[in-house]
């Protein structure tokens, strides 16, 4: 049994003040507690079509992409694996709807909301700062909006979502135990872009 606590603290709750001190051309915000469901099924099977009806969009089959609606996004994590991401608090509703849609077909839905927290990085410096720790080329010609790569940022595993074609908005899905490290790395990587040296 888990203990119900009255206060829920996100992994980066203490970092908001530090993020406020970043240069004007880059903004970092945590988007905590987002709903995340791991979905495993055969991409060509009937379950995939059922799921597509529930989430309103076909599961992406092209590697390293994501698609979605305002309600839920489907991230390609593998040829038979997706991560469904939705606003906070939708776990039970989405999970029930997906399980009902999959029915007796082969497929699994697992709530992994606590597995990662989301960092929203935006601003014109986004690509330059991330390039200091990430080998993925975020140039819009290589990584247009809709790109979802699992890679390493400063040796920490991340899921990186490119939100727009100019790569000025990127979401990072990070394990909670790595989140303070990634946050401190981001703040450090931004240091040289401050207008006046500390």
């Amino acid at each position: 049994m888990t203990v119900e606590t009255s206060i829920r603290l996100s992994p980066l709750a203490d970092w908001a003040a530090a993020f406020d001190q970043l240069p004007a051309d880059i903004q970092v915000r945590e988007m905590p507690f987002r709903t995340q469901l791991s979905l495993r099924l055969d991409a060509d099977g009937p379950a995939a079509a059922s799921v597509a009806e529930v989430i309103g969009v076909a599961l992406p089959t092209a590697p390293c992409t994501f698609v979605g609606t305002d309600e839920v996004e489907a991230l390609w994590l593998g040829p038979d694996e997706w991560l469904l991401v939705a606003p906070p608090g939708r776990q039970a509703q989405l999970q029930d709807a997906l399980r009902a849609a999959i029915g007796d077909e082969f497929g699994t839905v697992t709530d992994v909301s606590a597995q990662r927290t989301t960092l929203r990085v935006s601003g014109s410096l986004t690509r330059e700062v991330l390039a200091r720790g990430c080998a993925i080329d975020l140039h819009p010609q290589v990584s247009p909006g809709g790109t979802c790569v699992q890679t390493q940022l400063a040796q920490a595993g991340v899921v990186l979502l490119v939100r727009d074609d100019a790569a000025t908005s990127v979401w990072l899905l990070i394990r909670p135990s790595f989140a303070p490290y990634v946050a401190s790395w981001l703040v450090d990587a931004c240091t040289e872009y401050r207008e006046e040296a500390p």
């Binding site: 590697p63 390293c64 593998g78 040829p79 080998a135 790569v149 699992q150 890679t151 390493q152 040796q155």
Partner: peptide, 17 residues
């Protein structure tokens, strides 16, 4: 760093493998 072409993800750094 050497790049390894993952059949799914394309060229990635060897450290990811």
């Amino acid at each position: 760093m050497q790049l390894i072409p993952c059949p799914w993800c394309g060229d990635r750094e060897e450290a990811e493998f």
